[in-house]
Design a binder for these strands. Structure first.
Lengths: 102, 102
DNA sequence: GACCGGCGCTACAGAAAATGTAGTAATACG
DNA sequence: CGTATTACTACATTTTCTGTAGCGCCGGTC
């Protein structure tokens, strides 16, 4: 049985997206790039994951056209990535509220 | 070195939240519960994951007070969980746009 | 041209997490 | 009693992640 996108057998965009964002470190990487570009090692240190997995997640994010590598400044969000981030920004505020509630 | 929440050494709410949501199947489970409550097996079939992991993710989500189990109807989002979902709803629309772009 | 430092990235062994399948325990109905 | 449905667990196998070391490339500097 051919497996295509992990965890998504339908191929519906929302499922593909949820699967991508649900991979370890992906949300975190997007979050770390929210303000300015970061170098590979900066990113790795910031999130504290192994270079192996940072690299493979970056590869997935680049393939998804959410992140790109600029030789001069480092990894950064694409316009598409910035759009996605914009949807997530309210999360910051909500997280504080949530932390108080639990 | 004491590790607390996985992937989050700071304990800042946004990091804890990103870590929780970045675990495999978590976003998907919240998404599946967006409309009506679902039984354990319904949920398991809907997302196609093993019962082991469905159970442990549900446990994490229940601990985070985002999901609760109602004996009569099944698993459902708490008020807090519904708030979180509301932040994610635009994602559906955006996912279609994104799918066309890549 | 040999030696640095910074860069993105890879190799690889061991540890941790997820899968797939089977089965348990509780409850309710007949 | 048997059968059905429920949430959930056990466990061996497979996949993924971690931690550490190091490669290859490039632009200085002596």
């Amino acid at each position: 049985m051919a497996k295509r996108v992990r965890g998504s057998r339908t191929g519906r965009p929302i499922m593909v997206l949820l699967d991508l964002l649900g991979r370890r470190w992906v949300l975190r990487i997007v979050w770390e790039l929210r303000e300015e570009p970061k170098r590979f090692r900066e990113l790795q240190d910031a999130i504290g994951a192994s270079p192996t997995i940072v690299n493979s997640r970056l590869a997935e994010l680049r393939e998804a056209k959410l992140v790109e590598l600029d030789a001069d400044t480092g990894y950064r969000l694409t316009p598409l990535g910035k759009e996605l981030l914009r949807l997530f920004l309210p999360l910051h505020l909500w997280a504080d509220k949530w932390a108080k509630a639990i």
